Simulated assay, not measured.
Amino acid sequence: MTLPSFPTELLKPVADGWRQQRGESRRRAGGDQGPPRTRRGISKAADAVQMSFICDHDQRARFERFYDEDTGEGALPFLIPDFATDGDWLMTADGALLTDDEDNPLTIASTLVCMFGEQLPGYAPIGAHWQVSFILTVLP
């Protein structure tokens, strides 16, 4: 089964619209006194990513079609670029760009496997555009 990809014609998230939070994989037990005891609970935890982007009416329609048809109204996993690192240049420890044989800078290609999380897509009008916001669950 091939996973659908997030539509490339949609814009990158707004600067404050991409927040990634680590998933909880620890087990904590509080005692009567002192700090809580902490140990590893599960081997892999699902991270959460809050995403928000601005789009026009056509891009909103494309996003809604992706949500409704490609992800089965948010029930199926999909691929999305990791906007935190995707497209960044690879550099050495001293900050020099890594290049290929033709001196083209090398970039990071990072993709996440996600599902729509607890907060499903919501829309807020911004002039003639829309702000689309939702939370993704990054699958381990």
Rank of each mutant, 00 (worst) to 15 (best):
D16L: 05
P81R: 13
D100E: 07
V113C: 15
A93I: 01
A75C: 12
Q33G: 08
G127Y: 03
L139G: 03
L10M: 12
R60Y: 08
W89D: 04
A75N: 06
V113I: 14
P140G: 12
G74P: 10
L97Y: 10
D86T: 02
A128V: 00
W89G: 12
D56F: 02
A46Y: 03
G41W: 00
D101A: 15
R22M: 09
T99E: 08
S52N: 14
Q131G: 12
R62N: 05
D56Q: 07
P121T: 01
G34P: 12
A128T: 01
D82R: 14
E24W: 06
V132D: 01
I54E: 11
D47C: 05
Q131E: 13
G31W: 08
W130I: 03
A124T: 10
R39C: 11
G95K: 10
D16H: 15
Q20P: 05
G23M: 02
G117K: 14
P7C: 07
G74H: 11
R40Q: 13
Q131F: 01
Y67V: 05
L79G: 03
E9P: 00
S110A: 08
D56Y: 00
G30L: 14
G34Y: 07
L106Q: 08
P140R: 13
H129Y: 11
F63H: 09
H57D: 05
A29H: 10
G31V: 05
H57C: 11
S5P: 00
I80H: 03
E24T: 04
K44Y: 06
E73F: 15
S43G: 11
I108H: 02
A124L: 07
P77E: 00
W18S: 05
Y123C: 09
E102A: 13
D82G: 09
G31I: 06
T85H: 07
E64N: 14
S25L: 11
G127M: 04
I80W: 00
G41K: 09
T99V: 04
S110R: 11
S133E: 15
K12D: 02
A109W: 09
Y67R: 13
Q50P: 02
C114E: 03
Q119W: 09
C114R: 12
G30V: 03
L139N: 12
F78T: 03
M1Y: 00
P77N: 01
H57P: 04
S110Y: 04
P81L: 04
A48C: 01
G87I: 05
T107W: 15
H57T: 04
F83A: 15
P105V: 03
Q119P: 00
P4L: 02
S110F: 06
I135W: 05
D68T: 05
D103V: 02
S110T: 02
A93P: 06
V14C: 05
F66E: 09
V113D: 04
D94H: 15
S25D: 11
A109D: 14
W18A: 12
E118L: 12
C55E: 01
A124V: 03
D56T: 03
D32I: 10
S5H: 07
P36G: 12
L11P: 05
S43I: 08
P4N: 08
